[in-house]
């Protein structure tokens, strides 16, 4: 088992009341899992992801990564953000090298950055600043930066939702190509999305959360062969099934 989310609950306290966001979440993450977490707006999907990567602490319960309680500086877990989170004053290569500086130096640092720049098709863009990039290219930098730390677990929070529909389609396929490449990290992916079609297209497991406070209402194994076709009736049967569990 790669990671275990055990009895995780999260409550936010204000002056006058308590708001329960997540309620007793339990599931495990195995090697080769591509898990999508879906659920209605406000069900705590992103909060759960932030707890899994160690950026937020649960009110109760724990997240274990390879048997150890997760911490925010775990180098084996990387995150891709919805809004890319690039430093605008750094070039593409510098944005990627920045996350490697604590682990690698000099030629090795540059070599690793270049390897992942090439892997996502960004070669030629090394010296470019984020302001000059389209949304799709910015998120490719986000992928390269996350992969460059060679994570075992990659977590992504709505990575396609800031992109236009056609670019998003292209990036999903490219991400699946990287996922299918045995020479590339990670061993497992957890992705939060509000888009059910996207979840069925990308994942081999879908965890469905209830409205707030989020509870796991289903943990589905998606038994569709890859490459998947969004026009396939069987694909739509899965989409319908997930919708019926959310509504």
């Amino acid at each position: 088992m790669l990671a275990e989310i055990k009895n995780v609950s999260k409550t936010y306290e204000t002056d006058s009341n308590k708001i329960s966001v997540l309620d007793d979440i339990n599931f495990s993450v195995e090697d080769n899992d591509f898990i999508c977490i879906v659920g209605p707006s406000g069900c705590g999907k992103s909060t759960l992801l932030r707890i899994i990567v160690g950026l937020e602490k649960p009110t109760s319960g724990e997240v274990f990564f390879k048997g150890e309680v997760i911490s925010s500086d775990n180098p084996k877990v990387a995150m891709v953000f919805q809004n890319f989170a690039l430093f605008p004053w750094l070039t593409v290569q510098e944005n990627i090298e920045l996350v490697l500086e604590s682990k690698k130096q000099g030629r090795e640092l540059e070599k690793t950055a270049c390897k992942y720049i090439k892997a996502v098709g960004l070669d030629g863009f090394e010296k470019v600043y984020p302001r000059e990039l389209s949304g799709g290219m910015k998120q490719r930098v986000g992928f390269a930066r996350a992969l460059a730390v060679e994570p075992v677990l990659l977590c992504m929070d709505e990575p396609f939702s800031s992109l236009d529909a056609l670019t998003s389609q292209n990036l999903k396929d490219e991400l699946l190509m990287l996922w299918a490449d045995a020479n590339m990290p990670p061993d497992a992916v957890i992705m939060v999305t509000h888009n059910v079609e996207e979840a069925v297209y990308m994942s081999n497991r879908i965890i469905i959360l209830s409205p707030r406070p989020g509870k796991v209402v289903a943990d589905l194994k998606i038994e569709l062969e890859r490459p998947r076709n969004r026009k396939d009736p069987e694909f739509y049967r899965w989409v319908d099934k997930v919708y019926s569990l959310i509504v």
Binding site: S134, G136, L166, R230
Partner: peptide, 18 residues
Amino acid sequence: KATISEIIGLLEAVNDAG
């Protein structure tokens, strides 16, 4: 006025339709 990513995304969608 379309990026290369948008064009490939379009081709992928046409491919899905056969």
